[in-house]
Amino acid sequence: MTTAVVTGASSGIGAATARLLAAQGYRVICAARRADRIRALAEEIDGVAIECDITSDDDVAGLADAVGGSLDVLVNNAGGALGLEPVAEADLDAWSTMVQTNLLGTTRVTKALLPALVGARGVIVFVTSTAADSGYEGGAGYCAAKAGERAVVESLRLELYDQPVRITEICPGMVRTDEFALTRFEGDEEKAAAVYRGVPDPLTAEDVADAIVWMATRPAHVNIDRLTIRPRAQAAQHKVYRES
């Protein structure tokens, strides 16, 4: 049976991707910190729940043990944004958390599972962001973390050019999920709602999951280097149509 690991599977894009991979016949290992959520998801999709904080060496080693010697798909989805302050008011603790998760945590998981992926001629899908493309006001910490993650993607693809593993990247733009903006603004529902106010049809977690699964299920000789996915209303990171 083909096997997939999805990190950050407890909600949003991760949970939607786990469901869709399971529907495609994969045995899905759902990895996240919130054990109750991933247990419920794993039961729903007949998968496996592994409590895993990707910033922990021990947790990631446990994930690698659970995977074993063969892995067909790794979706590096865990991460997220914190805050929207200008650099002059930067919360460096929040910046450190974003780097630890988006960049170092993702690299930790990739390093640990890479032998199993090479052994299975597998594919890695890194979920970065259009924030990796350029900076925007208030986004320096998140943009830096995601740009760093992209640097790992680009370097890894070059380093493994002669190995039977594919290195792919998806860059979502504006996606409305249950938690992304709420986490960014520490549970402030008004600030979170303002991000999407007036925007007709932002992307959903299912939209991004559909693209991820498409990327992961291309023939073994096909590599989708990078795919940018945005809602029609978002022409660029800084240019979004909002209905009055």
Rank of each mutant, 00 (worst) to 15 (best):
D72G: 09
V127M: 07
V73F: 08
A216T: 07
I50G: 02
R27D: 00
S129A: 11
A132G: 07
D210Y: 01
A194K: 15
S70M: 08
T128A: 08
E149R: 04
C30H: 12
L74V: 06
A220C: 05
V123W: 00
D178V: 12
Y241T: 01
A23M: 13
G68N: 04
P172W: 00
V6P: 09
D91S: 10
T228Y: 06
G122C: 09
R242A: 07
D59N: 06
I212A: 03
C30M: 10
G173R: 04
L41W: 14
F185A: 01
L203I: 03
Y136A: 14
T168V: 11
V153F: 05
V199G: 03
Y161C: 04
V28Y: 00
G83W: 15
V60Y: 03
I212V: 14
L82T: 02
V125E: 02
A78K: 09
S70T: 09
L21F: 09
A209N: 04
E149F: 10
L92H: 12
N76I: 12
P164R: 10
G187F: 13
L160K: 08
G62C: 13
I38Y: 14
A194E: 13
Q237S: 09
T228F: 04
F180H: 05
V67P: 10
D72N: 13
R184P: 07
T17F: 06
A193S: 13
E44F: 08
A23R: 15
I54Q: 15
A193Y: 11
L21I: 09
S155R: 03
G105M: 01
L113D: 01
G8L: 07
R166L: 05
G79A: 08
T97P: 02
A220T: 14
Y161P: 00
Y196L: 03
V199L: 03
A205M: 06
G68M: 00
A40W: 09
R166Q: 03
D53I: 14
G173H: 04
C171N: 11
T183H: 15
I29R: 06
L182N: 04
V5M: 03
L63S: 02
D178Q: 14
I38V: 13
N77V: 11
A32W: 11
T217N: 03
S10K: 13
G187K: 10
T7D: 13
G14F: 14
A211Q: 00
V6D: 07
L156W: 05
G105L: 03
A66W: 08
L156A: 08
D162F: 07
M174G: 05
V213N: 01
S11R: 15
D46C: 12
V48H: 08
D91Q: 09
L203Q: 01
C30F: 14
T2S: 09
Q234M: 11
K146R: 11
L82A: 00
R33C: 14
R242K: 13
G8P: 08
L20Q: 14
R218S: 13
M1V: 04
V99A: 07
E186V: 01
G79I: 12
G25S: 12
A192S: 07
E190Y: 10
V75L: 00
G69I: 09
D207E: 08
A220V: 15
T168P: 01
S244D: 13
I124W: 08
E85S: 15
N76P: 06
E159K: 06
I45D: 02
I170A: 02
D201R: 09
L82S: 00
C171V: 07
R150F: 05
Y26W: 12
A144N: 05
G8H: 11
G69C: 04
D59R: 05
Q234H: 05
P86N: 03
